[in-house]
């Protein structure tokens, strides 16, 4: 399956990936409104890690051997049968945070508005995830490897 890969040698640390991820997962989908009114509810599932000169954007790796799926006590965390992406069904999630504890990448976070896990869904329904699409330096690529 296609995954998002970071090319840290070209990451500017501008964080446009985070910004557009947040907008994509906001209710309004409009950047100014999302930042003004939905800061409490919308959260980016993509985070730029930075240390000195090095930076890169990190999202869920959609592991083949996903520990979060194994650890999930309700079956909310599951693999989408068509895309292969690891997805959290927020209707079934009870907020036990087992997934957060086992994730080796630290890519699952607590949701801001509800007590449910929040993570990258590869922008379900889009050809290219918005973080990749909006990276000005193509430091994020979406490809099979």
């Amino acid at each position: 399956m296609k995954r998002i890969f970071a090319r840290e040698e070209y990451c500017l640390g501008c964080r446009l990936c985070e910004i557009h991820c947040l907008v994509k997962h906001s209710k309004s989908k409009r950047i100014i409104k999302a930042f003004r009114r939905e800061q409490d509810t919308a959260a980016p599932a993509c985070r730029v890690e930075e240390s000195g000169r090095v930076s890169f954007a990190l999202q869920c790796r959609h592991c083949e051997d996903a520990r979060c799926i194994e650890a999930c006590i309700t079956g909310a965390m599951h693999r989408d049968p068509t895309t292969g992406a690891v997805i959290c069904d927020t209707e079934r999630c009870v907020g036990c945070w087992s997934c957060i504890m086992v994730c080796p990448a630290g890519a699952v976070e607590r949701g801001r508005s509800r007590q449910v896990a929040s993570k990258c869904d590869l922008c379900m329904g889009e050809d290219t995830p918005v973080c990749v699409m909006h990276c000005p330096n193509e430091a994020l690529v979406y490809e099979e490897r």
Partner: peptide, 12 residues
């Protein structure tokens, strides 16, 4: 009215 305080400008 448009600035969302994202600080991309600061970083760039």
């Amino acid at each position: 009215a448009r600035c969302i305080g994202c600080r991309v400008c600061v970083r760039q």
